Simulated scan of single mutants.
Amino acid sequence: MAAKKKILTKEDIVSMYMNDVLEKGEKLKSVFQFVKGKDFSEAEFYAFFGTLEGLEKEIFKLFLVNTIDLLHKNTDYQDYDMKNKMLSFYFTFFEILTANRSFVLLALKNDSNPIKNLKQLSALRESFKEYVAEILTDDYRIEQERLQKFQEKSLQESAWIQLMLTIKFWMDDVSPAFEKTDIFIEKSVNASFELMNIAPINHLIDLGKFLFKEKIYSK
Score class of each variant (00 low, 15 high):
E58V: 03
A43H: 12
L71W: 14
L55W: 05
Y80A: 01
K57A: 00
Q78G: 10
K73Y: 10
D69W: 06
D69L: 07
L70W: 03
K73G: 09
K57M: 03
N84R: 15
K61W: 04
L55S: 03
N84W: 10
F49K: 11
E42Y: 09
F91R: 12
F48R: 03
T75Q: 13
D81I: 02
D79L: 09
I68K: 09
F93N: 11
E44G: 08
E58I: 04
S41N: 11
Q78A: 14
L64C: 06
F45G: 09
F91P: 01
D69Q: 12
G50K: 12
K61L: 07
D69Y: 11
M86I: 11
K61H: 09
Y46K: 12
L71I: 08
T67Y: 01
E42K: 15
F48K: 05
K61M: 05
D79Q: 12
M86T: 14
S41L: 03
K61G: 02
L55H: 04
L87C: 07
F45D: 08
A47C: 03
E53W: 04
K73N: 13
N66G: 01
F91Q: 11
T51M: 08
E58L: 04
E56Y: 00
F45N: 10
L55K: 05
M86F: 13
F93I: 03
S88P: 05
T67H: 01
